[in-house]
Simulated scan of single mutants.
Amino acid sequence: MNDLGINRVLTEMRALQARSKLPAQEVAPTAPTAPAQESKESGFVNAMADAVRDLNTKQAESGKAQEAFQLGRMDLATTMLKMQESSVAFRAAVEVRNRAVSAYQDIMNMPL
């Protein structure tokens, strides 16, 4: 992957990170019912679920845009833009998955 591709992936990851922080700040504080470790875990799980939902939405929009272009309802530039957004989001998700697997393998290979 060249520098331009890496910068796009990093930009997308930063955007996902920024979006994942917004809902946590808007929620009113409530009485803790679970240990702090579980709340951190659920925050990560929620962030990942939101990222996957966003990826799915972008891919669905890309498919709809392709179909609309084929039917003559959408212009080529908009269709290509939706396809590229979907592609960049997918590559970012794959990169995050690869990094997570690599981190897991590093941890599992650590001597006790």
Score class of each variant (00 low, 15 high):
residue 43 G to T: 06
residue 83 M to E: 08
residue 72 G to C: 01
residue 86 S to Y: 06
residue 48 M to C: 01
residue 56 N to Y: 14
residue 67 E to H: 04
residue 10 L to V: 00
residue 43 G to A: 11
residue 7 N to W: 12
residue 101 V to E: 10
residue 36 A to W: 04
residue 25 Q to S: 04
residue 95 E to K: 09
residue 61 E to M: 11
residue 31 A to Y: 10
residue 103 A to N: 03
residue 101 V to T: 10
residue 4 L to F: 07
residue 71 L to C: 06
residue 55 L to T: 01
residue 92 A to I: 11
residue 90 F to G: 10
residue 56 N to A: 14
residue 73 R to Q: 09
residue 27 V to A: 05
residue 19 R to S: 00
residue 77 A to N: 12
residue 61 E to T: 14
residue 64 K to R: 14
residue 57 T to D: 15
residue 83 M to H: 08
residue 38 E to L: 15
residue 21 K to D: 11
residue 3 D to S: 03
residue 82 K to T: 11
residue 21 K to F: 11
residue 14 R to M: 10
residue 47 A to Q: 03
residue 60 A to F: 06
residue 41 E to F: 15
residue 86 S to Q: 10
residue 10 L to D: 00
residue 67 E to V: 05
residue 81 L to S: 11
residue 41 E to H: 14
residue 93 A to M: 10
residue 95 E to I: 10
residue 111 P to H: 15
residue 57 T to P: 08
residue 74 M to D: 01
residue 12 E to A: 02
residue 8 R to Q: 07
residue 82 K to A: 13
residue 61 E to N: 08
residue 86 S to K: 07
residue 18 A to N: 01
residue 43 G to E: 10
residue 70 Q to Y: 07
residue 55 L to A: 09
residue 59 Q to E: 14
residue 5 G to Y: 01
residue 65 A to S: 15
residue 66 Q to G: 09
residue 20 S to W: 10
residue 59 Q to T: 11
residue 93 A to F: 09
residue 91 R to F: 13
residue 89 A to W: 08
residue 12 E to V: 03
residue 36 A to Q: 04
residue 49 A to F: 13
residue 85 E to W: 02
residue 112 L to G: 03
residue 56 N to E: 09
residue 40 K to P: 05
residue 64 K to N: 15
residue 10 L to T: 00
residue 74 M to K: 06
residue 8 R to S: 12
residue 110 M to T: 00
residue 13 M to P: 00
residue 21 K to R: 11
residue 64 K to P: 08
residue 21 K to P: 04
residue 11 T to Q: 01
residue 86 S to W: 05
residue 65 A to Q: 06
residue 62 S to A: 15
residue 9 V to N: 03
residue 95 E to L: 15
residue 41 E to K: 14
residue 104 Y to F: 15
residue 40 K to N: 15
residue 83 M to C: 11
residue 49 A to K: 15
residue 31 A to W: 07
residue 36 A to P: 07
residue 65 A to D: 12
residue 2 N to L: 04
residue 90 F to L: 14
residue 87 S to W: 07
residue 9 V to F: 09
residue 87 S to L: 12
residue 104 Y to V: 13
residue 43 G to W: 05
residue 42 S to H: 13
residue 93 A to P: 04
residue 37 Q to A: 15
residue 77 A to F: 12
residue 22 L to S: 13
residue 56 N to K: 10
residue 29 P to F: 13
residue 48 M to W: 02
residue 48 M to N: 01
residue 30 T to N: 01
residue 59 Q to F: 13
residue 39 S to Q: 02
residue 34 A to I: 10
residue 66 Q to H: 09
residue 91 R to T: 08
residue 87 S to I: 06
residue 42 S to A: 15
residue 72 G to L: 00
residue 107 I to F: 13
residue 82 K to H: 09
residue 22 L to N: 07
residue 49 A to I: 13
residue 84 Q to N: 07
residue 105 Q to Y: 06
residue 48 M to H: 02
residue 32 P to S: 07
residue 20 S to M: 08
residue 5 G to E: 01
residue 3 D to P: 00
residue 52 V to D: 09
residue 5 G to Q: 00
residue 101 V to P: 01
residue 45 V to C: 14
residue 51 A to W: 00
residue 102 S to W: 13
residue 101 V to W: 10
residue 55 L to R: 05
